[in-house]
Amino acid sequence: MPALGFRVIAVEDYASAQPALRAVREAVFVREQNVPLALELDAERDPQCQHVLAFDESGEPIGTGRLTPDRRIGRMAVLGAWRGRGVGEALLAALLERAQTLGWREVSLHSQASATGFYARHGFLPFGERFVEAGIEHVAMYRLLGAPNPVDGREAALAALTGILAQARRGLWICSRELDPGLLDRAEAVAALRRFAVGGGQVRVLLHDPAAPQRALAPLIGLAQRLPTAFEFRAIEETVDQNDPAAYLVNDRDGWYYRPLGHRFDGETRIDGGPRARQLRARFEPVWERARPCTELRALGI
């Protein structure tokens, strides 16, 4: 799998790959993160797992990850000099591809708390309370393969938004009651939307009640006023549209997050659900055409 000066392979012979696996994992977990060597080695389980390795152009190992028999992704590690260059994404894609080949319907993982955004960008959602593992704070995350993922609560909603924004090319459509306080006003959400807009993304927002976020000084309105060519707001006024209780967001690359009750975060999401994404975009367009422009949300003088 060549890309950006590295390649990813599936390990066929654990014994011969063991030195490369240990070289990466000991560098990252033991020397960098101070995980005890005996705990990192996992000598009993490691041979039963399926591993992937990333190598640089000279054949030196630079990253690794594994699938355990209990359908968990683990030991994801990339050498410091190679982080931010797509190695982690390639390793994760290879592991997910292998899980699907095996017919698995779900994979889970224990993400270090600092890495949850990385996994959210690839469709994983958090569940449960944070916990300490090997002296490091972790979050349990999961992803259903080939099916919508249930969203339960605010943190899972933020992860769903993160995944849809990360996978989007140029378009994002949002239908919201009052700009989703607790989600679209989160600093992480506003930052992700800003990156998307600055990168050329276009965001259309349908609101049931534009006055509520205006009164609340919603940060997304301020962002839209600074980037007026990227954001457009319209207010739903037709009775048939106002009576629709749902809220949703959908991108132009088959990602969506749908809530049957727009005042709650509970719903379903999927980053690769083409038919449902097309259905939601088709649902959005006629409502958009019937809605009025929210001129009251524009910056003065615009």
Rank of each mutant, 00 (worst) to 15 (best):
M1F: 08
P2R: 12
F6E: 08
F6C: 09
V8E: 08
V11N: 11
S16K: 06
P19Q: 12
L21H: 14
R22L: 12
R25A: 08
R25W: 11
A27P: 04
V28T: 09
F29P: 00
Q33F: 12
N34G: 03
L37H: 09
D42I: 04
D42Q: 13
A43M: 09
R45I: 14
R45D: 00
D46V: 11
P47Q: 13
Q50H: 15
A54E: 14
S58T: 14
P61C: 01
P61L: 04
G63H: 13
T64C: 15
G65M: 13
L67V: 06
L67D: 02
D70F: 06
D70A: 09
V78P: 07
A81F: 13
A81M: 10
R83T: 08
G84S: 08
G84F: 12
G88F: 13
A93N: 13
L95A: 06
L95G: 03
R105C: 12
V107D: 02
S111N: 00
S111L: 02
S111D: 02
Q112S: 09
S114A: 15
S114P: 00
A115P: 00
T116F: 06
G117D: 07
F118Y: 09
A120D: 05
G123S: 05
A134C: 10
A134K: 10
V139S: 08
L144W: 08
L145D: 02
G146D: 05
G146F: 11
G146V: 09
A147T: 06
P148E: 10
E155S: 01
A156I: 01
G163Y: 00
I164A: 02
I164M: 06
L165S: 03
A168G: 05
L172T: 04
S176Q: 00
D185I: 04
R186A: 13
A187C: 02
E188Y: 02
A191K: 10
A191Q: 10
V198T: 09
P213G: 01
Q214C: 02
R215T: 05
A218S: 14
Q225R: 15
F231N: 10
E237K: 03
E238G: 01
Y248F: 15
L249H: 12
D252N: 13
D254V: 03
Y257F: 15
R259F: 07
P260L: 06
G267K: 01
T269W: 06
R270L: 15
D272N: 14
P275Y: 09
P275F: 06
R281S: 14
E285K: 13
W288Q: 05
A291V: 04
P293N: 00
T295W: 11
E296L: 00
L297E: 04
L297P: 09
A299G: 15
L300R: 12
